[in-house]
Amino acid sequence: MIPSPFDYTAPSSLDEALKLLHDLGDDAKILAGGHSLIPMMKLRFAEPEHLIDLNNIPGLSYLKIEGGMLKIGAMTREVETEESAEVAVHFPIFADVAKLIADPQVRNFGTLGGNLAHGDAANDQPAVMLALDASVEIAGLDGRRTVGIDDFFYGFYSTAVQEGEILTEILIPIPSGRSGNAYHKVERKVGDYATGGVAVHLEMDEQGICTKAGIGLTNVNPTPLRAVRSEAALVGTSLDNGAISSAAQFASEDCNPSSDLRGDIDYKRHIIRAVTKKMINKAKQRAFKN
């Protein structure tokens, strides 16, 4: 399978890329890791006339902790968050999620920015970013803006990244005090997209009372979904079994899975209930280990 013909440019600066993107309008598409886009182009689901490759632009790939934030450059590869000891201190969730994204070869190329910008509810990083309350920096010719993750996912393959814009950075607040997070998804086989996946991030005070809860769900809604009622069911509690069961129950009720090759609706709701419970417990355990 070969994509239909297109023109290709690999600019060496972000400004150059933005100018090109502006001049070419919606005939052009950004190429990051290419591991969502190229398969779609081979199937001719996408037929851009021009690809603007970000891979030769220096300074878009980094992981750094600065001003109370973990900052992830858009072109940072999945494998880098998987292997970073610095990231693992506060966010063991990145090793959880990366290990479940496709396989090592795909993770060597797929980028964090691309995983979000693709706007696919089947991708795993969006749920993690919801749980961690991330925000996303987007650059255009007129400057940069920051969008909260709750305002980022518009619909199927559609995000806050507008024509002429490039996602440049992901920002995640470093939790203060006791915290833990975890991700798991049920997959039919290693490397498959999620039948259902759950990301959980918890923060607690000295007494072990939950002060903040973030829960994101993968592939059980047209867009990545925040489990709002589940989060509320945990905050203010000591994360006792009753609170955890209610949170899990709410997540299974509030998601909107569709019936497909990966399973029917009831099965998927059941998965979400079970995995939510498991991930809350795992995040809690990690919080008390710190």
């Binding site: 690999a10 290419g34 591991h35 190229i38 398969p39 081979k42 891979n55 070869q105 060597n108 490397g191």
Partner: peptide
Amino acid sequence: CDTSSCGACTILIDGKSAKSCTILAVQAA
């Protein structure tokens, strides 16, 4: 598979394993 799934096309690019059916030749410049 020609669909990024099987790994038969795996090569190393600057030492990193990669599925060469999912990468453009121009990207390897």
